[in-house]
Nucleic acid binder design. Sequence first.
DNA 1: CGCGAGATTGAGTTCTCTCAACTTCTGTGG
DNA 2: CCACAGAAGTTGAGAGAACTCAATCTCGCG
Lengths: 248, 248
Amino acid sequence: MANSCLRTGSKKEDPKYVDCDVCRLSPICSPVNVGGHTYDFTGKMVNRRHYFKKGEVIFQQGEQAALIYAISAGSLKLITEVKGSSRVIDFRIPGELVDICSLNEGIYNYSAQALEDIYLCEIGKETLNDIASQIPEVQGRLMKVVSQELTNIQTSSMLLHGNVSSEEKIAAFILNLAWRYLNSGYSSTDFKLNMTRNDIADFLGLSKETVIRLFKKLQENHLIQIDGKKVHIPDINNLQYFVGIELI
Amino acid sequence: MANSCLRTGSKKEDPKYVDCDVCRLSPICSPVNVGGHTYDFTGKMVNRRHYFKKGEVIFQQGEQAALIYAISAGSLKLITEVKGSSRVIDFRIPGELVDICSLNEGIYNYSAQALEDIYLCEIGKETLNDIASQIPEVQGRLMKVVSQELTNIQTSSMLLHGNVSSEEKIAAFILNLAWRYLNSGYSSTDFKLNMTRNDIADFLGLSKETVIRLFKKLQENHLIQIDGKKVHIPDINNLQYFVGIELI
DNA sequence: CGCGAGATTGAGTTCTCTCAACTTCTGTGG
DNA sequence: CCACAGAAGTTGAGAGAACTCAATCTCGCG
């Protein structure tokens, strides 16, 4: 029930938490100056680094949305129920927010499931809204967070939508991840695909065989190098040219 | 240069302006209560119903983004340059905002072009931000507008992304429009497609022939009725079941 | 070491695209 | 008001892309 920061008694190495200053919520977690005094509301609002096991469901579609999540370490997938089976809507990596949308909604529109062992910071929606409505500085920062998120979602959606060939779709998917890793302070040219080929296929509306074959084709064309879950982008500009959008 | 409200001396009938209260910007355009007094900043910020001709470009990708637009009448398409040719990113209908993203960005990420004669309300970004930063009530309302927009974009993107078959993609496109017309106070079951088949194809990453053939197939399956640019949805629940998402 | 999930490969089928011809619609000028 | 030109929409045929199904391989975990 209580915060389980660093609950890891496991044999695995300690996770590499993302720095708070790359987290999209950092404006909210920083101290605020009000009438000459500095206040830190973090303790009131934020439950830091709550641990979830690989495969665990963080929240379920339809549940009351009381918390906003930011990923401190690990990654997760967002899924929704479609005609009895589930479909992957998106992925989230360290530093990113999970459901800022729920700020003005009562319930979660999708479920979230851990792709690996993860640590999430949780923010109480109600407390946040209360504080924001009383302190303009916090309101302003929240505004910044939300509009940044709006820009990010729009950029991602622009990138992933409307590609003609499946090869472009997959290239766009990789480029999108590269860009997001960069935004979170990681390498944009070397990263790990934490999701399965099936998840990727499901997300892109392709079959997993097509994903595998087109990964291979992209590799043959020297646009990416892929070895299992590890991706390397030899020349990001080539990839961007192929996708047709300059992000980085 | 100045506002050209009701410049219509043309032979066409007067456009049916959308009611201000369905406009996504209406919270911003409503009077504000500050310390017991009521202020109306609308005059300061908003240039109402600026007329643009069919085909006219409202703003160009890369330009300084000084204005936010809300559509009062008519519709437009958003396009971006990809490898020398342009690609349709999205459409906007009356009551919707055109580029709220530019709030925290310096330049437009895409161009906007009128699909028919349109009237746009323009809001000065800088003035809006100034007023918002001084008056918490306005800040809060702006927050509402932006997070509503975030939810809308995410819903649309969830709906349109990840469909396996092209038939589902097109059905999702129609359902998305139905939902958006509903949100703007129009009929969700009868509306007009103001864009060409080519625009739709481009937006969905299909060929125009496929769009035409699948419109026909959807009609044969009684999911939609389509006659030129007019669409009728006989049973919205059937369509939603086919797409696999319950929106309305 | 063995099991099971995930990844890969091949073969055949289905879907979607491209190209080209043709029709319909729309707007303009006479 | 009509004629015409260009844009948009439609249809058919053949080529190419992506899907499905089934078999096999690999790797991590107990």
